[in-house]
């Protein structure tokens, strides 16, 4: 999904969505990970795969991992710091691709923007744990080691997947 995608192209789908998406700010590790200011946050840590990326990249990655794991992790204390206006087309594609993949969800979800947000946040909250774990267990001389091994695992698995 190219970062150059134009949000305007999908704006009609999101025009009435919540203005901010959130993460669990009661969890200090999660809060630090999503922070825009803290030096060790995902977007500020030089060794992070998200270094100099936007929070939507982190959120969507966390959501993708969470959806892959399969168990959403709802949370109550929410801090809305990820403005929807900065989401790009591929972020919206990922959100809708995840939301529609859930059993019993049909097109009517498009008219329940809060529900869309809740689903995405719950999966992102589950996935962010894994990303924090990746950060903790990364190799000293290869900060992307965990992402690399996941990537290679998928390549091997999928190349034989017709």
């Amino acid at each position: 999904m190219s970062e150059s995608s134009n949000y305007k192209r999908v704006r009609k789908l999101t025009y009435d969505w919540e203005k901010y998406f959130a993460y669990d700010s009661s969890d200090t590790e999660v809060e630090e990970f999503f922070s825009k200011d803290k030096p060790n946050s995902a977007v500020n840590d030089e060794n992070s795969i998200f270094y100099k990326k936007i929070l939507w990249d982190v959120f969507v990655y966390a959501m993708a991992v969470g959806r892959y794991i399969g168990t959403p992790k709802p949370f109550t204390r929410k801090t809305g710091t990820i403005p929807i206006e900065f989401a790009k087309e591929h972020h919206v594609v990922a959100i809708l691709g995840v939301v529609f993949s859930i059993n019993d969800i049909d097109l009517s979800i498009l008219k329940q923007p809060k529900e869309i947000r809740n689903i995405c946040e719950s999966y992102a909250n589950a996935g962010v744990e894994k990303l924090i774990e990746f950060k903790k267990t990364r190799e000293h001389n290869n900060p992307l080691s965990e992402y690399e091994s996941e990537f290679l695992k998928f390549l091997k698995q999928n190349k034989s997947n017709k």
Binding site: A64, V65, A94, F151
Partner: peptide, 10 residues
């Protein structure tokens, strides 16, 4: 990795 890993998760 960044551009493609999330696609595999999704």
């Amino acid at each position: 990795i960044f551009e493609n890993l999330s696609k595999y998760y999704l």
